[in-house]
Design a protein around this nucleic acid. Structure first.
Lengths: 242, 242
DNA sequence: CTACCAATCTGGTCGGACCAGATCAAGCAA
DNA sequence: TTGCTTGATCTGGTCCGACCAGATTGGTAG
């Protein structure tokens, strides 16, 4: 439930990204050949190719047949999934990123909640209550709340009937999940979080756009501030690669 | 500049996604083994593995060592990059998706523009004017405006100083780019689009949040409506896979 | 019927091989 | 000397076969 990618592939993806950063390669620059990378990393070429296929799909690199591998975007750019991948690999822990993710989450979730108030169906309410149930149960059992949290927020956005918004939020939630694993250790926070979530559902049920929007904004901002405080206490290892 | 993925890998990714859809596999279901897929698709196992590495990174599948390949998400879910990939492969052309993408774009771009009005630097203005210049030049030369359009909108969002928003918008822009290739064939539209863009930059320069937000909303909505009209004229081949 | 063990299947990784186009430098011609 | 042709080299794309070790499963012995 936690493993992101198979060991060797992720290892090679990581090494490759590190190589790019270490050598300060810019957009359009060429990377070493597959054969050289495989030798340098001590893995077979087939493993390198798997990693490159991933980087290609992420739009980070571009493989030109018979020519070479080129950097399509700087490592800092690229798609959202690429960012999740980097987070999974422990390559991104920039405080700037956490700020930006929080901001983006608020933008998307606030508007999604407004839409949800307008369009939510009974099925959405059912799913939300179910997720809430799981959330409460997880608190009781002392389980991994981060996962339940992701599920709830995605259910929230799903009520907007906009699948693209769900897809947009998914990577943002996955990223912030990592930061919040420590965060959810506090019992007070766990309970407050549950209360917040219940309020969201109530607002959606009542189709109260204004309240829902204000609540989610405050919720995400508060959570982000708490995480930041934790980080400053030295709670999070910063692998600042920029 | 147009090629999304290498031929064979994308071919196999496509076949795999089609297999999943055709067999109506649900979350948690198991796919055939790599060896069987390679035989079924008529490609080497190494090619299948590259495709699976991509699907894995996209969080569509999950490969459990010594066990099998399982569907992590329904094909309709997954990350944003996965959607771009599907669009690249011609697997997604659902009118519902275009509506959702438009909605998501408006949400993100409108707020991004507001932030841009607050935070834009002189460097941002320079880049915007540069992009505008390229845009005008492309119109003159009769070139591919879709690409210049993506560049401009990303530059717009970049002025918000929020990299995550840029990453969020990137897949949305890449997707809509495909729909708009036909759209930009009309000369009237090309010119109107340029005028709109100039207005955005002016609003950002003047730090006029309200105007900028309203403009971008109208711009995206209008463009989406035009594309829809084109599609209904039979202008776009619908490969509705749902 | 249960419990245990071995054949089988699976993904993970490796190494080598061939192809055809891109690249580039050496050598030839002007 | 300069410019162009040409061939060796390099590169990614694809395929094949092999080995490993853990998961799975079926059959057999108790």
């Amino acid at each position: 439930m936690a493993t992101p990618l198979s060991s060797e592939t992720s290892h090679t993806v990581r090494r490759t990204l590190e190589f790019v950063q270490h050598h300060r390669l810019a957009k359009g620059d060429r990377l070493p050949s597959e054969r050289e990378l495989s030798e340098r990393f001590g893995v077979a070429r087939s493993s390198v190719r798997e990693a490159l296929a991933v980087l290609d799909a992420m739009r980070i690199t571009e493989r030109r047949p018979k020519s070479g591998i080129y950097l399509r975007n700087a490592v800092e750019d690229g798609g959202l999934d690429a960012l999740v991948l980097q987070a999974d690999l422990g390559l991104t822990f920039d405080p700037q990123v956490t700020r930006d993710v929080t901001e983006a989450r608020i933008i998307c979730e606030e508007q999604a909640l407004r839409l949800a108030c307008q369009r939510r169906t009974d099925a959405d309410l059912t799913r939300l209550h179910q997720s809430l149930q799981t959330y409460a149960a997880t608190i009781q059992a002392g389980g991994d709340l981060a996962e339940a949290d992701v599920d709830f927020h995605l259910a929230l956005v799903a009520a907007s009937q906009n699948r693209i918004l769900v897809r947009t939020l998914t990577p943002l939630m996955l990223m912030s999940r990592r930061w919040r694993e420590r965060y959810f250790e506090s019992d007070a926070i766990r309970r407050r979080s549950l209360a917040d979530h219940r309020a969201f559902v109530a607002a959606i049920e009542a189709r109260d756009e204004v309240t829902a929007a204000a609540q989610v904004r405050r919720h995400v901002e508060t959570a982000a501030a708490d995480v930041r405080a934790l980080a400053e206490q030295g709670g999070l290892a910063a692998t600042n690669t920029t």
